[in-house]
Every structure is written in structure tokens, then in C-alpha cells.
């Protein structure tokens, strides 16, 4: 029984290690082949956190412009 559990364990662990090494290999190969930085953030193409902040903030100038337009 113990031997059988160990055999099953051995097989599963080997498969997982192959998957791990394989994905890492693919990832590293992709990173090197693309010749791009690993990570890049910029103010213009702001990431999720910054866009959310912008959306949540109330744009008073926009409202005031609309108000002015209505008044005219």
C-alpha cells in the first residue's frame, strides 16, 4: 500500500515539476525573444489602479463646462 502511494506520488510530482520547468522555459524564452522589458508601466497607459482613481474622482471642470454650456 505504502509503495503504491509512493509510486503515485512520484509520478504526480514528476509531472508537476516538468510542467513547472516547461512553463518557466517557455516564459523565459518568450521574454528573451521579444526583447522587451520584463515589466513596464507608464503614466499614459496607466494600469488598473491609476485608471480607477481617475474614474472615481469627480471631474468638476467637466461639470462646470457642461453647466456653462447649458446657461448659454
Amino acid at each position: 500500500m505504502r509503495k503504491r502511494i509512493m509510486a503515485l506520488f512520484y509520478m504526480l510530482v514528476s509531472v508537476l515539476i516538468f510542467l513547472q520547468l516547461g512553463t518557466r522555459l517557455k516564459q523565459m524564452h518568450y521574454v528573451q525573444a521579444s526583447a522587451k522589458p520584463l515589466y513596464l508601466v507608464s503614466q499614459t497607459s496607466a494600469s488598473a489602479a491609476t485608471t480607477q482613481q481617475e474614474e472615481q474622482a469627480i471631474d468638476y471642470s467637466k461639470w462646470s463646462h457642461q453647466y456653462d454650456d447649458q446657461q448659454q
Binding site: 502511494i5 506520488f9 510530482v13 508537476l16 512553463t23
Partner: peptide
Amino acid sequence: SLYLFVLTVLVVITSLLI
């Protein structure tokens, strides 16, 4: 990674038996 997570869970549970 997720693979290593599964591997760790596997090792931990098997450690109870072997």
C-alpha cells in the same frame, strides 16, 4: 506558481502517510 502549489499540497498530504 500554481504547479508548485499543487506539488506542495501533494507533498504535505503524502507526508502524513509516508
